[in-house]
């Protein structure tokens, strides 16, 4: 596991400001989806018992239905854990000099990119949707002059405050860059 305070290619004097993750509500939605998916076969079982009550009295049918149900539950458990892994491993780190974007897109696709703060051109915060507005989460878009033109902090808490902090850090980084010349 990675130490929270460690930085890849750390520069002299560089400090971590904070790490950002998706809002807790996103993880809550995964939990709700998990409960719904786990309850679905129970509903199906009740439906089968009500519509064709003799179907499951046959031991062979019961055994096949049980195996199918168990395979379904295994698949859902694997699916939900994978969703957690993908969501939890999306981390955005803001340091005094740069932004580090770590995104897990699927189980076998990980993207890590960095942006120097002085290359930031524009920062936009967005809150869209009922739950996003009520619970205070949204996206922050960072336009850059680097190879990767746009960074997106997805579904993070308090996006307007984060955007303001990045703008302040960007101004500070640009001033420092001018002083160093």
């Amino acid at each position: 596991m990675i130490n929270k305070n460690s930085l890849p290619n750390k520069q002299r004097g560089e400090e971590i400001i904070f790490h950002l993750r998706r809002h807790w509500f996103i993880f809550f939605k995964i939990a709700v989806l998990f409960i719904v998916l786990m309850a679905a076969p129970i509903a199906l079982y009740i439906l089968v018992r009500l519509t064709t009550p003799t179907f499951l009295t046959n031991p062979t049918n019961e055994a096949i239905f049980t195996v199918a149900l168990l395979i379904y539950y295994l698949a859902m458990l694997a699916f939900i854990f994978t969703m957690w892994t993908e969501t939890y491993l999306d981390v955005w780190t803001i340091t005094t000099y740069r932004i580090i974007n770590r995104e897990q897109n699927g189980l076998f696709n990980r993207v890590v990119s960095e942006l120097d703060l002085y290359r930031v051109q524009d920062v936009t915060a967005e809150q869209k949707g009922f739950f996003a507005t009520i619970l205070g989460y949204g996206h922050v878009y960072i336009q850059s002059a680097g190879a990767k033109e746009r960074f997106v902090f997805e579904q993070i808490s308090d996006p307007y405050r984060i955007a303001k902090i990045i703008q302040q850090l960007d101004e500070r980084a640009k001033k420092q860059k001018n002083l160093d010349r």
Binding site: K4, L70, I71, L74, Y88, L89, R102, L107
Partner: peptide, 24 residues
């Protein structure tokens, strides 16, 4: 067979969390 696939998939998940997740 499904258990075997589940086990392998779970190992991949745990590997990712151990390798790329924070120590928390």
């Amino acid at each position: 067979g499904a258990i075997l696939l589940f086990f392998i998939w779970g190992l991949f998940n745990i590997y990712h969390l151990l390798r790329f997740g924070f120590l928390s």
